[in-house]
């Protein structure tokens, strides 16, 4: 084969390979640009994901009965967070009635667990101290059982507090009309409780259900 023909064949091959390469490069760039965020085109596509967020907030987060003592001749005093008759056999004064208030401020239903930081003996001291709580739904159906009903819940009655997590609401709803519960407290202060400031922390933990 003469040299000119060889050259022609090589040139044709070079041209074909170059065209093929250019075509593949064009396809590759097209594919890549569709994968890169921020690529603009005349047809738009907006993607967004709404993340679920478990969030709880104590709208009333401090209960204070001030300073006081058990009435002389009484063996104990009773302190509650109820609106009326919240101090019995003592001269304490409840600063804010209505209990602690917890609101589900997230965008998903959660389970609500409560715990206290101290036992009655650690918190109050003396002989037979009492430390109870009573969870109630401020808004109807804020607190539901695991099947979405209202049966079997420990609501509306004073029971002893615990330092371990106790589930009160398997479903604590997030909808604005049913997302708030209150925790009332009932504290029994024995006449021989050691004098001094008594403080404790109540912790609410929520988990997405």
């Amino acid at each position: 084969m003469e040299d000119s023909k060889k050259l022609l064949i090589v040139a044709i091959i070079a041209l074909v390979v170059s065209m093929l390469s250019a075509w593949v490069s064009y396809l590759s760039v097209s594919t890549l640009s569709s994968k890169i965020s921020g690529f603009a085109s005349n047809t738009g596509e907006a993607n967004l994901t709404v993340e679920s967020s478990a969030a709880v907030n104590f709208t009333t987060d401090f209960i204070d009965w001030g300073s006081g003592q058990v009435d002389v001749g009484q063996t104990y005093a009773q302190l509650t967070t109820l609106e009326t008759n919240n101090v019995t056999n003592g001269n304490w004064t409840l600063q804010t009635a209505g209990g602690l208030r917890i609101e589900n401020i997230g965008n998903v239903n959660v389970s609500l667990n409560l715990s206290v930081g101290k036992t009655a003996a650690q918190f109050i001291g003396g002989t037979n101290p009492g430390y109870q709580w009573n969870v109630t739904a401020v808004e109807a159906n804020a607190c539901l059982n695991s099947t979405g009903g209202t049966g079997g819940l420990q609501l509306g009655t004073f029971i002893d507090t615990t330092t371990s997590q106790t589930e009160f609401c398997p479903i604590f709803q997030f909808v604005n009309t049913a997302d708030e519960v209150r925790i009332d407290l009932n504290i029994t202060v024995p006449y021989n409780a050691p004098p001094g400031a008594k403080t404790d922390t109540i912790t609410a933990t929520v988990t997405v259900v």
Binding site: E51, A54, W65, L185, T201, A204, V206
Partner: peptide, 24 residues
């Protein structure tokens, strides 16, 4: 994306027991 699946909050309870002849 990531989603927050747990949260917690805390509240304080406080009162003061004054000393008396019975418990001081």
């Amino acid at each position: 994306t990531s989603a927050r699946v747990t949260d917690s909050g805390a509240a304080q309870v406080k009162f003061v027991v004054e000393p008396t002849s019975a418990n001081s």
